[in-house]
Amino acid sequence: MFRIRTAVAAAAVATIAALAVAAPASAHDELVSSTPAADAQLTAAPAELSLTFSNNLLSLDENSGTAITVVDATGEDWVDGEPVIQADSVTVPLAEGMPNGAYAVTWQVVSSDGHPTSGEYSFSLAAAEASASPSATPSETAGEQPEPAKTTQPEQQPDSMQWPLLIGLGVVVLAAIVIVIVIAARRKR
């Protein structure tokens, strides 16, 4: 009976230790706001896209792993330059002439913990006039600003959110197998 208790206690300690190790791995920085915001319905084409995260982002060089796309229904990417990282924000310029319709934003950044994190969201554009006309004066576009940034929870890619859960589940299953083997061995004696 003493060995069974010891095995159960050891399995419990192993499970708690594995979950404690897995918990920090799930603490990647999260997107806290975006401009344009997720599901925003804009009346004027935005000049840039800005994402703000829960912590400062890593940016070691131009190839830091940061990537943003803003793709319309035809598959055209409207990003018009390299992402600029400043502390907890990343901004990318958008090309002029964005047509009305839905846009899918995908992003990947390197979290403060050094791990890449990514997500996606969408917004739509329904400008009164086609935004392709460059003759709009600043006073005309000043009244048609995009909606202010709001807190969004973009869809996380399954890889970044599922690993800690899968690791914890694997440890629990392994502990259960060990317990069953110990009990079976005990009964054979």
Rank of each mutant, 00 (worst) to 15 (best):
Ala102Asp: 05
Pro158Cys: 05
Thr106Lys: 08
Glu82Ser: 10
Val172Pro: 06
Asp88Thr: 11
Trp107Leu: 02
Ser112Gln: 11
Ala67Val: 09
Asp39Arg: 03
Leu19Met: 12
Leu49Val: 00
Val32Trp: 05
Asp159Thr: 12
Ser139Gln: 14
Ala23Gly: 00
Ala142Thr: 14
Asn100Trp: 00
Glu48Pro: 00
Thr35Met: 14
Thr91Glu: 06
Ser111Arg: 10
Glu144Phe: 08
Ile181Tyr: 05
Glu62Tyr: 08
Gln153Ser: 15
Gly119Ile: 11
Thr69Ala: 10
Ala102Val: 10
Thr106Asn: 08
Gly97Asn: 02
Leu60Asn: 00
Ala14Tyr: 06
Asp72Pro: 02
Ser54Tyr: 03
His115Phe: 11
Ala132Ile: 13
Asp159Arg: 08
Asn63His: 08
Glu147Ala: 11
Ile167Arg: 05
Trp107Thr: 01
Leu51Tyr: 04
Pro116Lys: 06
Ala10Asp: 02
Val21Cys: 08
Ala87Phe: 07
Thr151Lys: 12
Pro116Tyr: 05
Ser124Gly: 13
Ala126Phe: 02
Ala7Gln: 06
Thr35Tyr: 15
Ala23Asp: 02
Arg5Asn: 07
Lys150Gln: 14
Arg186Asn: 12
Gly75Phe: 07
Val180Cys: 10
Ser124Lys: 00
Ala27Val: 06
Glu120Ser: 15
Asp77Glu: 08
Gln157Arg: 13
Asp72Gly: 00
Ala11Gly: 09
Asp88Glu: 14
Arg3Ser: 12
Ala184Arg: 15
Ala127Leu: 05
Gly114Met: 02
Ile179Phe: 07
Leu57Pro: 01
Ile179Asp: 04
Ser118Trp: 15
Met1Gly: 01
Ala47Trp: 07
Ser135Trp: 01
Gly65Arg: 03
Gly97Trp: 01
Ala142His: 13
Glu147Ser: 09
Ile177Leu: 15
Glu96Cys: 00
Ala126Lys: 08
Ser89Asn: 11
Thr151Met: 12
His28Lys: 11
Gly114Val: 00
Ala95Cys: 04
Trp107Pro: 00
Glu147Asp: 09
Gly65Pro: 02
Thr141Met: 11
Ser133Ile: 11
Gly75Glu: 09
Pro46Arg: 07
Glu147Val: 06
Tyr121His: 13
Thr152Gly: 02
Ala38Gln: 10
Ala128Glu: 14
Glu96Met: 09
Pro83Tyr: 09
Ala38Cys: 07
Leu42Gln: 04
Asp88Cys: 02
Val182Met: 13
Thr6Asp: 10
Ser111Trp: 13
Glu147Gly: 03
Ala142Pro: 01
Ala142Arg: 14
Glu155Lys: 15
Ser59Cys: 08
Ile85Phe: 04
Ala27Gly: 05
Ala27His: 07
Ala14Phe: 12
Ser133Met: 04
Ala87Val: 07
Val182Thr: 14
Asp77Trp: 01
